[in-house]
Write a protein that binds this DNA or RNA. Structure first.
Lengths: 331, 331
DNA sequence: TATCTCCATGAAATCGTTTACATTTGTCGG
DNA sequence: CCGACAAATGTAAACGATTTCATGGAGATA
């Protein structure tokens, strides 16, 4: 790979001048500019992003970190796509770190990201008290949180109104006539799990249904937990007539168990999932679900981050996007 | 962020010595080592991966590039997970580049990856003649291809035997008694599309079924194309009795249309998909599919890449993993 | 005692940029 | 005709590491 030095030599100028035409800053004679551009082309010169990043500490590296809890969850894949599109358009590139809900892994990735001198970070922290992410914010790195906030910390966040969305979804189920609605929640440490549960509780109470605590079970947000909990619920002597599942993966796990038992949806048991998938219509029956605008969450977060990199002083924004109840045929 | 210089100052030594204890190379007095470690701890020093990468050109940067055609395809997500696990274990970090089957985007990402001085690349090239990836291989960067090879190029590859897998799958369908088996293929430019189609053709011929060319339609590997083509097939005056779909996304698109038409699987139309998903059991009926070991493909590719980085001269390996026909209830 | 080795360490070059400062040249106002 | 200023370019320091070479002192050997 040709370096700036070689370009300079070939064009018979100093590297400073080459740098100037590359960043088209200051004035440089048209004739020399041409000479330099020619040399660049001939040598197929490409600036080293590494050297650039090392020299000009922040904002010029065009490198973003993305820290997500679970890449197997289609929700985060869509968020990632949104981020990636914005990044691409702005000539940024992404270091993707998937910490699989493992805080050790998260810690290591954050260290690495710092030492990679990223210009900014989009993160879904492990939980609201996440000290590692907090520290990074305090260090002054531009950060945007998605899906989950950071308690007591002024930081950009993009998310949906989890509690209200859950409330509406459960209300819908109640209006449909379901009485024993179970909720399979996600990891209790994750803020959105708590909020969704809260929404569920409020809806039940506001509609005068009594809350059977046996119908509320929190798992670990995984497919496996979706299966286990559903199994447990369906084995009750007085099983639920409807399921409100706490995320994508849980929903799918639940469906596997329901299919396995040859139960009819929604006749035997109705299902309403939090989180929609692009292929929810491929399920049979098509899934009724709360659709978080995952792609847009990612896109907005990317935009906010790039804004903040350009203007670190801009006041923080909490952006709440609307989720949408996709009524299909499972409930 | 503290730099090596500050550590050196604090410990009262030169940066060379600090570097030595960090890489525990050469001999350094136990006492000074202690002093330095203390200083490192006190300053919370973390080496800059950027500086490291700039200085020691290759292999020390602990940075891998991953270039994939479509992050919405669950297959690649699983591959990515495999890569990521190996990378994590070996203290590498990943720059994820999703080019969305767009060759312009692919070109840009490859340029960036080069200029990020990555230590190695795992790529699923756009097609077998991919000049951009070929150039990178020629430049001497360690590269491992997944899912797709590079024609006339000696390079590590990890994939499955697409043709044979398709052959077996279609044979299975034939043995089940299906006669008019349609095939919805992926982008003709992608090698695996061609191989799967080939396997389909051979199976049909070898079993003495006549090949109705109207039942072979190639799309662009997307969900949307899966829908369109299925729509077309089901609208024929003499529609197929079974569908062999060319990838994940196509399968899901097909299922959406089939559900929409209230057709029963497999009674009205059977479906066998190429590519399995972790949640195939959540589909109703559970999908019969050719399961590529996606996670393992990623893992193996990661291992091969790290090996090659350590030993660039090692002869190339073409690693063909076994796919498995997961017989469930859609066919 | 002179020389040789070995251990421990430091000095300085290097990677490929950016950028503050210095230098050269030409032009223009007074 | 001289000083001031602007335009165009060059010089060199910096970013934060690695690495080669040099050096000083302690033991060992002859």
């Amino acid at each position: 790979m040709a370096s700036m030095n070689e370009v300079a030599k070939r064009a018979g100028v100093s590297i400073a001048t080459v740098s100037r035409v590359l960043n088209n800053s200051e004035s440089v004679n048209e004739e020399t500019r041409m000479k330099i551009l020619k040399a660049i082309k001939e040598l197929k010169y490409q600036p080293s992003r590494v050297a650039k990043r090392l020299r000009s500490k922040s904002g010029a590296g065009n490198l973003l970190g993305v820290l997500i809890p679970d890449i197997q969850n289609p929700f985060y894949v869509d968020v990632l796509r949104g981020i990636e599109d914005v990044a691409y358009q702005n000539n940024y590139v992404i270091i993707m770190c998937n910490f699989s809900q493992d805080e050790k892994k998260e810690a290591m990735y954050l260290e690495i990201l710092e030492s990679e001198a990223i210009d900014g970070l989009i993160a879904a922290p492990a939980h609201e008290e996440d000290q590692r992410v907090k520290k990074i914010v305090r260090n002054g790195l531009p950060v945007v949180c998605v899906d989950r906030g950071l308690k007591g910390m002024d930081v950009d966040v993009v998310w949906v109104n989890n509690q209200e969305s859950a409330y509406q979804a459960v209300s819908f189920m109640i209006e449909k006539g379901y009485k024993r609605i179970a909720h399979i929640g996600g990891l209790p440490t994750i803020p959105s799990s708590r909020l969704r549960l809260e929404g569920y509780r409020n809806a039940m109470q506001d509609h005068g249904l009594d809350l059977d605590e046996n119908l509320i079970i929190q798992g670990d947000s995984s497919y496996a937990s979706g299966m286990q909990v559903t199994e447990k619920l369906l084995s009750m002597t007085n099983p639920p007539d409807a399921l409100f599942t706490g995320n994508n993966l849980i929903t799918l796990g639940a469906l596997e168990v329901i299919n396995g038992r040859k139960l009819q949806i929604p006749k035997d048991i109705a299902v309403l999932g939090f989180d929609d998938m692009n292929w929810s219509n491929a399920l049979n029956p098509p899934l009724t679900a709360v659709r978080q605008p995952a792609y847009e969450i990612g896109k907005r977060a990317g935009e906010l981050l790039i804004q903040r990199i350009k203007d670190p002083k801009r006041p923080c924004i909490q952006m709440t996007l609307n989720s949408e109840l996709k009524i299909r045929h499972s409930c």
